[in-house]
């Protein structure tokens, strides 16, 4: 797929808050390439630099060093009117929706159209079309405070799409919403991506958001991108401690904390967790291999997750017997299957 947004060694430094203090490096030498038409996730804890990074992409904030290109436009080189022209081609939605309270729903959606100088009649037609698309056709004359959070975010999405942008930036777009509404809004974003072909960059600290809609994900920590890959790969084979922690927040199949203690108390022997991806050996093959090796095991915990329509299984077994025999058998269970002892 063609590259759409390219960040080349981008950094953002903020001057120290007080004289003599230390400079804040919010984004530290980040290089990324986001493909046209993909949903790209950026995940990280608070303060990792996610918002700053996304605000560099549409140049709400100038870079300190490095270069960003969108399509073939070097957006970091532009200033004033030329920059603003490019910004009309990048939509953005926010955690707090940021709707104008002085305008109705229709007035909010019309705003970007006024900026680019669309005539009144055409504006009206386009606003109606957009409200229809986000499922708010009847609420054109309502004011933002009369809508629920989910509805307000739909207005935000309609506003962001008004000028037919090719890029949509979503900064924690679902963090202020309850789980059910989050799913609705994410599904709407997925539809924007699918039906309109818009490249979407989603910033979040929730792994659920990533597994639900992102094709690829970058993990950020202290201003740096520490891991990038397809959502499935990062999910099934996280390589950094941060990524592992994010994955654990959504993998219910993995015993953690108290759960692990209880399992240990209840079962004799050692505990191993086997992870299955859809590329490796099946559960059946693994179990028969263990049985053939004469290993006495009990399935004690586990389940299967669905990431972007692909399967990811985690099964924890309690094994009794000779350590060497166990190691040997488990080594041979097959490609694409990982075994980790729970210590």
């Amino acid at each position: 797929m063609a590259q759409h947004i390219v960040l080349d060694r981008v950094s953002k430094r903020f001057p120290p808050a007080k004289r003599g203090g230390e400079e804040i490096v919010a984004v530290d030498d980040v290089s990324l390439s986001i493909d046209r038409g993909e949903v790209f996730g950026i995940i990280g804890y608070s303060g990792a630099g996610k918002s700053t990074l996304v605000r560099l992409i549409n140049q709400l904030e100038p870079v300190s060093s490095g270069r960003i290109t969108i399509g073939d436009v070097p957006i970091t080189e532009l200033r004033g009117r030329r920059l603003r022209e490019q910004q009309t081609g990048i939509g953005m939605i926010f955690q707090r929706f940021n709707l104008l309270t002085s305008r109705t729903v229709a007035g909010n959606v019309a705003y970007p159209l006024e900026v680019v100088g669309v005539e009144r009649a055409e504006r009206k037609r386009r606003v109606a079309e957009l409200l229809e698309f986000v499922g708010l056709a009847g609420r054109a004359d309502a004011y933002p405070e009369q809508l629920s959070g989910g509805q307000q975010q739909r207005v935000g999405i309609a506003r962001a799409l008004a000028t037919n942008p090719q890029v949509l930036l979503a900064d924690e777009a679902t963090s202020a919403l309850d789980p059910e509404t989050t799913v609705e809004v994410l599904d709407l974003l997925a539809r924007v991506n699918r039906e309109l072909g818009v490249t979407i960059v989603v910033i979040t600290h929730e792994m659920e958001v990533i597994t639900r809609i992102a094709d690829r994900v970058a993990v950020m920590e202290a201003g740096r991108v520490v891991e990038v890959g397809t959502t499935y790969d990062v999910f099934t084979r996280p390589s950094t401690p941060v990524a592992k922690r994010f994955v654990q927040t959504v993998v219910r199949a993995l015993p953690q904390g108290d759960e692990l203690e209880q399992l240990r108390a209840k079962h004799e022997g050692r505990l191993f967790t086997i992870s299955f991806t859809d590329e490796g050996a099946s559960e059946a093959r693994v179990f028969s291999a263990l049985a053939k090796a004469g290993i006495d095991f009990n399935l004690v915990h586990g389940g299967v997750d669905d990431i972007q329509g692909r399967v990811y299984g985690l099964l924890t077994i309690a094994v009794r017997g000779d350590a060497d025999a166990i190691a040997w058998a488990l080594q041979r269970v097959g490609a694409g299957v990982r075994v980790e002892e729970q210590r």
């Binding site: 709400l60 926010f94 104008l100 970007p112």
Partner: peptide
């Protein structure tokens, strides 16, 4: 005025003068 509203207007490519007229004063 919440800064986010101004940020949202900036993200649409609105000029400072337009933001004063259509966002800051009305809000």
């Amino acid at each position: 005025i919440p800064t986010g509203v101004i940020e949202a207007a900036r993200s649409t490519g609105a000029s400072p003068w337009r933001i004063i007229r259509t966002v800051i004063l009305p809000e």
